[in-house]
Design a protein around this nucleic acid. Structure first.
Lengths: 258, 258
DNA sequence: GAACTAAGTTAGCCATCCCTAACAGTCTTG
DNA sequence: CAAGACTGTTAGGGATGGCTAACTTAGTTC
């Protein structure tokens, strides 16, 4: 995999922190490094030895750390990567600053340069593309941040949209599908007569395409009809139609009861 | 940090692989797990013991692995997360399938649920938002994938755009800023008279804002004028104007010579 | 049923990277 | 200048999670 260095994540972190400290304070002391990385001094001593062995820093015991030419080059690249990811999370997606920085700190060490380049390209494209209104991002953020709950109407009634500026169906489908912990179960766990809403559809492109063609989309409501003795096939009712799913298809569908 | 489980990345991987194998083949054998995770059988044995201790699988020596109720729940959530990230990378950003899956495999273990929810929300928003043409993604992909190089005109001439559908300046700014390895240096390394292009601007929001106000943006061309004895201040020429930067500002700017 | 083979286990090793505890310089202050 | 406070180092330990090598179990084949 094309990676930025052959250092471990931990050593990349140390190097990045050293550059930050040098930029902010003019020098990097072991104590400040320990504090910023939330580790003990003893761990820093070990890391500095390994970085010295790699030729990235020059360090005499009890002195402050300086970056070598190679170290500065690499640290700059690592820091640039970190700050790009943090900015994407914070400025585009609206993740709060601290979480964004923490996530960036972790993601930066594992993402490939190809994905990173393409993400950067995508962000540039959104900013430069003439068809995309420059307010797209702020509209997304205000829409997402409203965090409004879908207001369910009476039986048979269409749910109301929370806000006329949110695209139809947005809150049904997009809000907190990952952090929603409780209540998400496999389709196959439903009993006949249970009603549920589709939370996610996994599986290969082929299976997903077939399910999507049948209308099995996140947010879709369905009712379990019948499960055959061995769980194959499963009959459901969706938007008034009866569907028969094979066990292997049903296994890719997560739902929550409504 | 809100996370999906308190397992290590490695154990989450094992659990995910087990679910995939159960879905694909009806059962998960140690050998297949080892093969898919590219580890030796001995490592699998150890992992299966730890997963059994967590109550996520039930496993008798030399038998095939089955997921417990809790294991199936968790594995489904882990797999859903993986597949969402892989799909984002592949279908939206256009990363090739294998790299996307590998990156997803790594990112899924470290990203917070908040970031993931917001990314999912953003993707939904792009799909549903009436102002965004549904061809946005495919236009981005064709534009990015052209991979065309900017064709530099003669001295003083504006560079030509590669393609009329690419937003102006897109290729100058967005293409492979992270994987570009050689030649990216700190602004302070330039010598008087050197010309360079800005590759990235890091640093706090305050510093970046100030630099952006002065026109120091990725892609901007500049010429080094003078570096004071201790590196502070640095004078550059940019778009015909002279700018004086403090050392701490200059340190956040990466450039490449042109 | 002996021999072979594939699958899986056990035992022991190693690297990374954190920790605590104890020790060693260095700076400040009465 | 001696005591105390800080800063930093060394030594040793533990968790994780890989590895190899040697063994066991079970199924197949002649």
């Amino acid at each position: 995999m094309a990676q930025i260095s052959n250092l471990s994540s931990s050593l990349e972190d140390y190097l990045e922190i050293i550059l930050q400290l040098v930029q902010e304070q003019g020098e990097a002391r072991a104590k400040d490094i320990a504090q910023r990385k939330s580790v003990r001094m003893a761990s820093v001593t070990g890391a500095l030895k390994r970085l010295t062995a790699e030729g990235l820093i020059s360090y005499q015991a009890r002195e402050s750390v300086t970056l070598t030419k190679a170290g500065e080059e690499l640290a700059g690249r690592i820091l640039g990567r970190h700050e790009f990811i943090a900015r994407f999370l914070h400025e585009i997606l609206g993740v709060d600053g601290e979480t964004a920085s923490r996530d960036a700190c972790a993601i930066e060490h594992v993402i490939s340069l190809e994905s990173l380049d393409r993400l950067a390209g995508f962000v540039e494209y959104l900013k430069l593309c003439p068809e995309v209104d420059e307010l797209l991002i702020s509209r997304f953020l205000s829409c997402y941040n409203m965090g409004c709950k879908r207001v369910a109407g009476g039986r048979g009634e269409k749910p109301k949209e929370c806000n006329s500026t949110c695209p139809r169906g947005f809150h049904d489908r997009a809000v907190k599908i990952f952090s929603r912990k409780a209540g998400v179960i496999q389709l196959s766990e439903l009993k006949p007569g249970d009603r549920a809403r589709v939370v996610s559809v996994r599986g290969s492109v082929i299976i997903r395409q077939r399910l999507i063609d049948m209308g099995v989309l996140p947010g879709a409501q369905l009712e379990m009809q019948r499960v055959a003795p061995l769980g194959d096939p499963i009959d459901i009712k969706l938007k008034g139609y009866h569907l028969s799913l094979r066990k292997i298809e049903a296994a890719t569908i997560s739902v929550e009861r409504v």
